[in-house]
Design a protein around this nucleic acid. Structure first.
Lengths: 232, 232
DNA sequence: CTTATATGACTGACCAGTCAGTCATTGCAC
DNA sequence: GTGCAATGACTGACTGGTCAGTCATATAAG
């Protein structure tokens, strides 16, 4: 071994970290601090894909680093540990959903049928149509062992969406659009098919595809009552 | 933490160093003789509780052995490896559900409302009320990484229940008990709240309990249409 | 004694997290 | 503008602990 340099005795530094042009080259002002946002985002994206694919335990941080195009040590410049990284992945994906929920609130006076249609459509496009669907499955899978994450998700998404739906349903009942107050008492009725669609998609789609749009439509139909008009 | 790719299925016989003789009597695909059914069941029970609690990856076979009251080596007299043990746990819990599904088939001529009521009740008692609920969550969590298990579950449970429900719904439509054929086209509508209840229970019950019986009743109410208001 | 079953210390792969070392960039002196 | 020291983001070989799976040995059964 070539001793000489400190660093243990195996300073064999092979390729001497060849990869030269790797520096981010931040824009002017350069926040060279530990805060290269772009790189952090790259890590988060890589982490989502690895976690989604393998689950929290089997996800290897070496893979995350590789996919993000950084060295493993770099991960620790941005995140305290694996668990924290996972939390931030969840957080970062939950935020956009929050916005969508907010948008819903403003649609309060539309007919309930339209609202549900819009809601399901957003879900189909923004969750089922993206990697976010894996995140949802991930939360289900790991939630029980990460109460903190379950709580985060509940407080930010579920806990906000439920009362909102309940309130809109109540208005619909008053307006005579809904015959039953089932949806008022159990806004979860809206969430069930969403969850189901995600699970089916990730597990059984391969064995038997589900016509998600049709499924959602059928569900809306039962919710709204669709009183089979026989002729006005 | 094995990695799924390297270890596990891959051969990679670690130790052994040119083992003296081949394995004892390797019974290909199954454990050796190992005929004590009671002990095997004890191991399966222990494994279910450990897997349910930690997930497949984090589950430690030392824990399974301890809970089953045997030594770790004993596990390998009954199961080839961790993955096989997991599969058998699933298999052993799926079987009883199969019986229930069979029983449903004979109730084909009851009013759809009664059938659904019975179905939901069975689920509440036999799944939500037992450790089996954890299994369901486990399947969701690990299914994507164990296609074999997802398929097993699909073929034995989902794939059988769906057509059955569809057929019963069709009869109900003919009898005029259902105004819409939504349930015929999407028997999954019945499964959605079941799945949802399991997930809610394991993740959010602590934060906001769900009145499962009420939830199921509300869902039945929307499905059946409860024709209160009528057409013009 | 021979065979079936059980045990648990042990082996080696595996991986989260660490840290000594590197080097592009920046800032200061001339 | 040129030279050079300081900075700190980045790297990846390494460590320490964990755990699936093994096997020499022990015990029970026949």
């Amino acid at each position: 071994m070539d001793a000489g340099k400190p660093r243990s005795i195996s300073a064999a530094r092979p390729s001497g970290r060849g990869a030269p042009g790797k520096r981010p080259q931040e824009k002017q002002g350069a926040s060279r601090k530990a805060g290269n946002v772009e790189r952090k985002q790259a890590i988060l994206r890589a982490a989502l894909s690895v976690f989604a694919e393998r689950g929290f335990e089997s996800a290897r941080l070496d893979d995350v680093a590789a996919r993000a195009g950084v060295a493993k040590g770099t991960l620790y410049l941005y995140f305290d540990d694996k668990e924290k990284l996972f939390e931030e992945v969840v957080q970062s994906e939950v935020s956009p959903i929050l916005d969508r929920i907010g948008a819903l609130a403003s649609a309060r006076d539309m007919p309930i049928e339209k609202i549900l249609e819009a809601l399901f459509q957003v879900f189909e496009k923004e969750v089922l149509g993206t990697e976010r669907k894996h995140l949802l499955r991930l939360i289900i899978a790991e939630g029980p062992r990460f109460p903190h994450i379950a709580e985060l998700y509940f407080r930010n998404v579920i806990g906000r969406a439920m009362p909102l739906i309940s309130r809109m349903a109540a208005q619909a009942v008053v307006r005579g659009e809904l015959q039953s107050d089932a949806l008022v008492r159990f806004p979860q009725l809206v969430g069930a098919p969403l969850l189901f669609a995600v699970v089916w998609d990730s597990m059984f789609a391969r064995l038997q595809p589900l016509d998600v749009a049709g499924f959602f439509a059928a569900h809306r139909e039962t919710l709204v009552g669709k009183m089979r008009r026989t002729r006005p």
